[in-house]
């Protein structure tokens, strides 16, 4: 799980920021942009706790 999280969590961050960028470049429509960001959110919260160590 930790190994998968190491890949998925950074990808989720990329997938949070890339859609608005692609939308700005008119590569991605608004609907798919919002959907991708939602999926990225779910993936982030599922994987980040395993990826981010420590915290307060």
């Amino acid at each position: 799980m930790n190994a998968a999280a190491k890949v998925l969590a950074p990808l989720a961050l990329v997938a949070t920021l890339a859609p608005p960028l692609l939308h700005a470049l008119q590569v991605l429509g608004e609907g798919p942009m919002k959907l991708t960001m939602l999926v990225a959110t779910v993936v982030w919260f599922a994987s980040a706790p395993f990826w981010m160590k420590g915290g307060r």
């Binding site: 989720a12 920021l17 608005p20 700005a24 982030w44 919260f45 980040a48």
Partner: peptide
């Protein structure tokens, strides 16, 4: 506190995404 710690990088990017859109 743990949720906040995990959410912080993602939240910041959502702010940036809002600005970009």
């Amino acid at each position: 506190a743990r949720v906040g710690h995990v959410a912080a990088p993602w939240m910041f990017l959502v702010f940036v995404a809002c600005g970009m859109v």
